[in-house]
């Protein structure tokens, strides 16, 4: 990570801040925390230059494109940014992705016959997984605090927003609410906990339901650990092993 300095230091850190909110769709973690972004520069004419890399040469091209596109969109939303380049290094599709992103092409335009549709379906699949993982984290936390199944399934969104919890719990609430709209309308009186299919979660069998969700979280955490490890092995980084994220009470 380059240290922000010089006349554009403030602007560079603004960019890092925006990038922090871009996630790897599969891992549901920030691309900056994962160590994917290697350099951010802002030049004299307010063009932003971002470089990033991935844990392997073979990482899925669709996710690579999504991250590049999301990064470009995130920084382009800043009013002072007059241009943004995002460049992926050492990847089987690096040339194609870089070319597509630099010309502002869509995924389909970039890949032509190699893609049969845009990314909306795969994007939704992984947003749902992120939703399920975040829901599991919150439900497990609340169950550990003694909320009964009956109480949880009758909660409305206003109840969740009003939960009095400490910082860690607040993060879980915030992260959950951020993804809740994917499965249904978010009026304050809407049910707080809906399944990925948008159905109310039944009180009976809630534990089994949560156990089903747990698989999604375990998988994502495992992949996150693997990706960090492969990235550091590939680029010979001595990255300290992060603690298991405090998503679950276990």
């Amino acid at each position: 990570m380059t240290v922000a300095s010089g006349p554009y230091a403030g602007r560079t850190s603004e960019i890092w801040d925006r990038l922090h909110h871009v996630t790897d769709p599969e891992l549901d973690e920030s691309v900056t925390e994962l160590g994917f972004v290697t350099s951010v520069e802002v030049d004299a004419i307010d063009h932003v230059h971002i470089q990033f890399r991935l844990p392997t040469y073979w990482c899925a091209a669709n996710f690579a494109f999504m991250m590049a596109d999301d990064m470009r969109a995130a920084v382009s939303a800043l009013p002072w940014v007059r241009g943004a380049s995002v460049v992926l290094g050492e990847h089987m599709y690096a040339d194609k992705i870089n070319c597509g992103i630099s010309q502002g092409l869509s995924f389909q335009e970039t890949f032509g016959s190699e893609a049969t549709a845009d990314l909306s379906e795969v994007r939704r699949t992984f947003l749902l997984k992120a939703f399920q993982r975040r829901q599991e984290a919150l439900l497990s936390q609340l169950m550990a605090r003694g909320y009964t199944a009956e109480q949880l399934v009758t909660m409305i969104l206003a109840d969740v927003q009003a939960l009095v919890v400490e910082k860690e719990g607040q993060d879980l609430v915030g992260r959950y609410l951020e993804r809740r709209e994917i499965v249904g309308p978010c009026s304050p009186d809407a049910p707080a906990f809906l399944s990925a299919e948008g159905r109310r979660v039944p009180a009976e069998g809630l534990e089994v339901y949560v156990r089903g969700l747990r698989r999604v979280g375990v998988n994502a955490e495992f992949n996150g650990a693997l990706c960090r490890g492969l990235l550091s092995a590939r680029f010979d980084m001595t990255t300290p092993l992060p603690e298991r994220p405090k998503m679950n009470p276990s």
């Binding site: 073979w58 990482c59 899925a60 091209a61 669709n62 089987m92 995924f107 389909q108 890949f111 190699e114 893609a115 049969t116 549709a117 845009d118 990314l119 379906e121 795969v122 699949t125 992984f126």
Partner: peptide, 12 residues
Amino acid sequence: GPTILPLNRDAF
């Protein structure tokens, strides 16, 4: 493994 076409689908 990864990289099954079409690229818009989940490769895994």
